[in-house]
Amino acid sequence: MKNERKITQGPIREKARTMKKLVNAVGSILRKNGYTGLSGYAIAKHAKVDRKLIYAYFGSVDKLIEAYIKKTDFWTPDTNAQVKEILENPRKRGAEDLKALLINQMRAVHGNRDLQQTLLWELAEKNKVLTRVSEEREFLGERLFPFIEDDFNDSGLDLRAILAILISGTYYSALHAANNGSTFCGIDMNGPEGKQRFENALRQMVELCYEKVK
């Protein structure tokens, strides 16, 4: 029985290692050559595995690329412990939860080059994989909004539009800092002081919204 278990676990471990190599290869190619360099042949060559394994383990090149994008995305339960906790413990959430989400998102996008690359890709090309991931992200948002929207009913504040501005502003500030390197509104987002100012501003804007509805 002991030997049998080893035989069973060996192929499973090897499959997991190969899948990880393929997913990582997508990121390496994307960073080096951009999204135009993503092909089944290039990914398999970089991962040093048989191209047939892409289809055996993921079903298609698109599904492999989708697996990579989801691994880098901030707004998924698989990669975000806070999102997972909110979904698993459905209850009303307040200002502190919202501030934590926005600040963690800011830190993630500023500190993760892979996430920055996928965001740039989303802006640069209309792609069915990116569209599908974006739609799933929106579906997840619809599951999260009910936990924070009650405080803003009949308040006159359009919470969703406010969050859209804050989230998209966070994305842009990170992409601008990483790819341009210059200041934005006189703030250096590549330095700790600039990032701290941005975090403080996120806290202030959330607090202003909650003060408005008290």
Rank of each mutant, 00 (worst) to 15 (best):
M1T: 09
N3F: 10
E4P: 01
K6H: 10
I7E: 11
P11W: 14
R13I: 11
A16I: 12
M19I: 09
A25R: 00
V26R: 00
G27E: 08
L30F: 04
R31G: 04
K32W: 05
K32S: 13
K32Y: 03
Y41V: 15
I43R: 02
A44F: 00
K52Y: 06
Y55P: 00
I65P: 03
E66L: 07
A67W: 01
A67Y: 03
K70P: 04
T72L: 05
T72F: 01
T76M: 14
D78L: 12
N80D: 03
N80P: 02
K84N: 11
E85C: 10
L87I: 11
E88A: 14
N89Q: 07
P90A: 13
P90F: 07
R91K: 15
R93K: 15
L98D: 01
K99Y: 08
L101M: 15
N104R: 12
N104Q: 15
N104F: 04
Q105Y: 15
M106K: 05
M106L: 15
R107P: 01
A108V: 10
H110T: 04
H110M: 12
N112L: 03
D114L: 08
L119K: 01
W121L: 13
A124Y: 11
E125L: 08
L130D: 05
R132T: 11
R132H: 13
E135L: 12
E135C: 05
L140D: 03
L140E: 04
F145L: 13
I148N: 02
D150N: 07
N153F: 09
S155W: 01
L157E: 02
I165P: 04
I167Q: 03
S168E: 14
G169H: 00
T170L: 06
T170K: 01
Y171E: 11
Y171V: 10
A174W: 00
A178D: 08
A178W: 03
N180F: 13
N180P: 04
C185D: 07
G186N: 04
I187K: 06
D188A: 10
D188G: 07
M189S: 02
N190S: 04
G191F: 08
G191D: 12
G194R: 06
G194N: 06
K195F: 00
Q196G: 01
E199V: 13
L202S: 00
L202F: 09
R203M: 09
Q204D: 12
Q204G: 12
E207H: 05
L208Y: 09
C209R: 02
Y210R: 01
